[in-house]
Design a protein around this nucleic acid. Sequence first.
RNA 1: GCCUAUGUAGCUCAGGGGUAGAGCACUUCCUUGGUAAGGAAGAGGUCGGGAGUUCAAAUCUCCCCAUCGGCUCCA
Length: 646
Amino acid sequence: MSIHITLPDGAVREYPSGITPLEIAKSISEGLARNVVAAKINGEVCDATRPIQESSNLVLLTFNDTEGKKVFWHSTAHLLAEALESLYPKVKFGIGPAIDNGFYYDVDMGEKGVLSSHDFPAIEAKMLELAKQKNPYIRTEVSKQYAVEYFEKKGDQYKLELLENLQDGSISFYQQGNFIDLCKGSHLPTTEPIKAIKLLNIASAYWRGDESRNTMTRIYGISFPKDKELKEYLHLLEEAKKRDHRKLGAELELFMFSERVGAGLPIWLPKGTALRTRLEDFLKKEQQKRGYQLVITPHIGGKNLYITSGHYEKYGKDSFQPINTPREGETFLLKPMNCPHHCEIFAHKPRSYKDLPIRIAEFGTVYRYEQAGELHGLSRVRSFTQDDAHLFCTVEQVKGEFLNVLELTLLVFQKMGFKDYTAQISLRDPATPEKYIGSDENWAAAERAIIEAAAEKGLKTTTELGEAAFYGPKLDFMVKDALGRSWQLGTIQVDYNLPERFDLSYTGTDGQAHRPVMIHRAPFGSMERFISVLIEHTAGRFPLWLAPDQAIILPISEKFLDYSQQVAQFLDSKGIRATIDERAETTGRKIRDAEMRKIPIMIIVGEKEADTQTVSVRLKDKENGDKGAMNWGDFANLFQELLDNE
RNA sequence: GCCUAUGUAGCUCAGGGGUAGAGCACUUCCUUGGUAAGGAAGAGGUCGGGAGUUCAAAUCUCCCCAUCGGCUCCA
């Protein structure tokens, strides 16, 4: 009997029933067959060695496919387990999945205790040795009873616990070499393609993420079909380390932390403040153009405010504890969000439909008690400033406001040089409508508005059902930085809850009170987080308009300090931020230091320049950095040109 | 909050029960220079904090704090 296989390009081929994807690949080309790691049959990922009985759609997966990578890495996790078992016979295994970048395996080392990264080379060597044996990954379907007996005999309580939740009849083992694991797959045909392996990290993790359970040793690793790819990946990791915003932030004197001020409380140094202020000014100007009104609200708010907003009930226990006044015994909380304050602004006077939409914006600093172990540079802090705004509008205006915000957010990304981003639209789960506040019609209208607005802006979107907040649907931007890493930045959220809780209303054309819709939005997200991403994206080489120091004047010798002062005054008059390196150092040294400080423009002045009233300009980029001598006016023009080209 | 590791000069790090070390940075002096590190001298530390063991603790033990990597959480 023969079957029809439909390939992704639409081609239909005829094969005998029972043929495997691997054999199909071979029939197409040997090269393809060598690269096939797994297959997708009618949308389901499976082993490339699984026979196909019926006519199907087939996608052959290689390492270049995301799903192929996962299979590859998952198979490597099994290889890691095999190596560990052969090196440490007492080891017991938890789970060993593929992750976005590689894989991990959770293991219990038993009496041997902890493993350390010093053990990695030996384990890697063992893994490579085992990979070279080209053992096939053999799938066996087993009964639950058989599986239980197997792991009982082996004494692996973790696998036994996993088995408890599995249905008899859907249990499979995979074996490669001497190692057998409970696993639903899929896997590589053999260990052969695993040519380059690196164990990266060791950490502890609770069994099943439950802190009352055993801690397991988690070993992270990554693998590739080619050594070159591993080298490139390791290079990327190194590059990421060099760009770490914590390191660059300290080196470039952007921000600091102080034990005495407190963990997770960033202190913005003058240069960081200059950078941040420019970002804020940029957004303020753009918001003003779009009808936003800037407000300032206090850093604390009365407890009743948060009881009204519902935040107290939901987060009160896990927040910074209340502040009490000594005499009156009033209770205040550090504000964890700006929206309750903004709701009060909306409520402070009667509003008409003619006033809507009302757009209230604030660079509002908020305080949240993040767990000590969670703090991380500027990306995870306890005090941060949101580029917050709340739009109060009618249901009909939601789409227009969304378009407005999307346009602003895209402008921000463009201005910062983020070219690759997707929008995640989070909708409610239709199966559990009771989890959400607000009427059905309003939800449907808002969800439709978001989807349409995103489509009109031509955004690449993903849609997640059930990811909406209980108070409304939202859209989050996922931005890829220069190293290809994804970050969640801007967010737009529809909120039906707070207008309800604050009993907000406006008078409609019918003279009746109506409930406004509230939209939270923050194109940057938070200044701290955004700047941390910006630092890593640009590696500290900020665009000219943002750079704290745009230019530095380097006198060839102290004799030209006077001339340097004149140049500095001219630059200042042109609004160019420049300083003079007045040290008695060689020019080479001054250039090197300016490079290290990542200052975009160097202006070198010596006898030649002083005599001819010119400046010699050197830009950061190596290729055509040396622009030679030019008169002051020409430099000002060049500067403007550089600004305009950003 | 939990698990692992770390904490020595501004930075990067060495050392290690008995007078605290290097390189860079810093200060001073010499050098007055032409596109990524000129030379010399000097200053700088209660070795994260507290308690304990000891004749003696930066070193060993315990408790805190901070940080790294994870886990859990994230309005």
